[in-house]
Simulated scan of single mutants.
Amino acid sequence: MSDLRNVSSNPHIRAKDTTSRIMLTVVIALLLPAFFGIYNFGFRALVLILISIATCVLTEYIYEKLMKKPITIGDFSAVVTGLLLALNLPVSVPFWIPVVGGVFAILVVKMLFGGLGQNFMNPALAGRCFLLISFTSLMTNFNCDAYTGATPLASLKAGESVNVLNMILGRTAGTIGETSVIAIVLGACVLIVAGVIDLRVPGSYIASFAVFVLLFAALSGIAISPAYLSAQLASGGLMLGAFFMATDYVTRPVTKKGQYIYGVILGFLTAIFRIFGASAEGVSYAIILGNLLVPLIERYTMPKAFGKGGERS
């Protein structure tokens, strides 16, 4: 009988979702901003995306092979990491940049901490931040055949006006995957409809960012207006980060209350970095710092177990 039945204590929860299905859905959703990035920046963007994905998948495979661990590349999590990393790169970077970033993201941030589900921060963003710190000039050079000059965020930082419609459509400089708000939001709709994400984290993130960026801009003497707020929301990696990276199952809080708090913290930090920081962008660092605060958030938002001080229902 022991071979036929598995006896375990309740509760018994069954779900059709698997890691591979969820990750594959994320890949499909990311194809929209990826295809637009290829259309916007050309063949070089496609090459960078393929290099980044191949590096992440191979790094995970080689590590698990050498460590004699089960091979997990079939869960598509390494593909998601490679694709997200590539979408956060300027198209002008050398081809070895996604290799270095991919190895760091998978080997250092993911595998050395136990693999999928054990990493303490988003691997793709950690890889991007590592590249930003190590190769700042390469990672902040957005000049290419399609666009030259400052990004919209840099122009806003300098007090210049920007074309919000071009930013929404994607006719602007930036990283491969962050330029088109429409493509990102359509991809996010795929995740929402599929039930992979909800609006707790991205909604609280974007809403709180809007409040804090207006507040901090006013305190800094920056002229605020609907056009300024629209430009801040549509520029940079805010939408990509809010829907595709802040919602990472592993590095976000598990409690509903914690997810709202997490989103507000991300909005606060992003506004701080954008208005008062030396760099025009702040999404990557905000999410990484938010990831580090997740254990603290969960400590104070996790419901107490019955009999351990919890309220009776």
Rank of each mutant, 00 (worst) to 15 (best):
L32I: 09
L48H: 01
V103R: 00
R14W: 08
D3E: 10
T175A: 10
G115D: 10
T55Q: 01
A124T: 10
S137Y: 08
G241I: 02
I224H: 03
I287H: 10
L199S: 07
V190F: 09
E60R: 02
S235N: 04
L4A: 14
V93A: 11
N291D: 05
F306L: 15
I168E: 11
Y61L: 00
S279D: 08
Q232A: 11
L87R: 03
V91L: 04
N40V: 04
A146C: 06
V27W: 05
K69E: 00
S284M: 13
A54D: 02
S92N: 15
G309M: 06
V47F: 12
I133V: 15
L30Q: 11
I182T: 07
P202N: 09
I53A: 00
V91S: 03
A86D: 02
S220R: 02
S2T: 09
P90W: 01
L89K: 08
F35R: 11
F43H: 13
F212S: 06
F306Q: 14
P70C: 09
G307C: 14
I106C: 04
P295E: 07
L132H: 04
F76H: 01
W96I: 05
D145K: 05
F35N: 15
F243Y: 09
Y300L: 14
A194G: 10
R299H: 14
I288H: 09
